[in-house]
Design a protein around this nucleic acid. Structure first.
Lengths: 118, 118
DNA sequence: AATATACGCAACCATTTGATTGCGCAAATT
DNA sequence: AATTTGCGCAATCAAATGGTTGCGTATATT
């Protein structure tokens, strides 16, 4: 019986979320895609969706909590920009699986090559 | 006003979940890590956690629904194995961001910009 | 044949999630 | 100075999530 990496420890409210939780929601993924192209204010982001400004604002908050998005106050506006560095965490986690699908590619390559030879 | 890729459409029950939802849960991520090493039965998987067999079984079901896990009946046992191919979907999605963190590595600009922001 | 094992299904429950609405405040604009 | 704009906060609500317990059934084991 092993206690795996499934700690859900909720130290304080701002640590509640992790990156995986954050990208689970399709709206949040869309927001990230937007912000990856250029930084925007919450209002500008919300304009791309049909849900309310508040709904989007909450999503941004969640993205900010896990540092996928960084907010910078500028006068009365807030500039949200994407933090690629944080997204790397997902990439790092996926590393353990990457070999497997690369292997399958190699196998496919081999198969194709074998076919060619015949 | 653009309707982004945030379709949540629930056509049938088995399409309910997507890969991102599936990997949002830490227990499910742990299950995937286990299965990536070798295929196991639900009971064997459950033995690694302290939650009940049923709880784990439900997680497996979710992983199966989005095809991250494939189940194969063998007698009274079910063999669960990891489907790396499906995990690639996450990798594909991340492709749009990957360039950014690679860029940031090259430029020590990044550090300077961060300083400026403060 | 009787029992044990492996597992799914259904009902139930507490908590979390995603969304809405109403309000307030500080920075811009007039 | 008065108004508009940008945005966060809090309350509220339906739906989804993660978990538990009890039960049924088919395959193994004795």
């Amino acid at each position: 019986m092993v206690a795996y990496i499934c700690n859900r420890m909720i130290a304080n409210k701002s640590m509640r979320r992790d990156v995986f939780q954050a990208i689970a929601d399709p709206t949040r993924r869309a927001i990230l895609s937007l912000l990856a192209m250029n930084a925007m204010t919450p209002n500008a982001i919300a304009a791309h969706f049909d849900s309310s400004r508040q709904a989007i604002s909450k999503h941004i908050q969640i993205l900010a909590e896990c540092q996928l998005v960084v907010q910078k106050q500028q006068g009365r506006e807030i500039n949200c920009h994407f933090n690629a560095e944080k997204m790397k965490e997902v990439d790092v986690w996926m590393e353990q699986f990457r070999k497997q699908w690369e292997d399958r590619y190699d196998q496919l390559d081999n198969l194709l090559n074998d076919q060619k030879d015949k």
